[in-house]
Measured scan of single mutants.
Amino acid sequence: HAATELTPEQAAALKPYDRIVITGRFNAIGDAVSAVSRRADEEGAASFYVVDTSEFGNSGNWRVVADVYKA
Rank of each mutant, 00 (worst) to 15 (best):
Y49I: 09
V51L: 06
N61G: 09
F56D: 14
G30R: 11
A45W: 14
D18N: 12
V68Q: 00
G57M: 09
A46V: 12
H1F: 08
R38C: 08
V33S: 03
A13C: 15
A40L: 05
Q10A: 08
E9F: 09
A28G: 15
V65R: 03
R19K: 03
P16T: 02
A35G: 03
I22V: 13
G44I: 04
A32C: 12
K15R: 11
R38H: 08
R39E: 04
E43K: 11
D31R: 02
V50C: 05
G60A: 05
V50Y: 01
E55A: 08
S59H: 09
L14R: 11
E55Q: 13
A2H: 15
E43S: 11
K15I: 14
N58L: 11
A3T: 06
D31L: 06
A46C: 14
R38N: 06
D41A: 15
T23K: 07
V33E: 04
A40T: 04
A45V: 04
L6Q: 02
Q10Y: 05
D52W: 13
E9R: 09
I29M: 11
R38E: 06
A13I: 13
R19L: 04
N27L: 12
T53Q: 08
G24V: 07
E5Y: 06
G24I: 10
F26L: 03
G57P: 08
V36Q: 02
T4Y: 14
A35M: 08
R63G: 03
V50T: 01
P16Q: 03
V36N: 00
A28S: 15
S59D: 14
P16F: 03
Y69I: 03
N61F: 15
V65I: 13
G60I: 04
I22D: 00
F48E: 02
E43V: 15
A66L: 07
A71P: 12
A13S: 12
V68W: 05
S59G: 12
I20P: 00
F48D: 00
T4G: 06
Q10S: 06
A40Y: 03
A11Y: 04
F48I: 02
T53Y: 15
D31C: 06
K70T: 08
L6C: 05
P8N: 08
A71D: 14
T4R: 14
F26E: 00
S54V: 14
V65K: 02
R19S: 04
R19W: 06
V33G: 03
G30F: 10
N58P: 12
S37N: 08
T53P: 02
T7N: 08
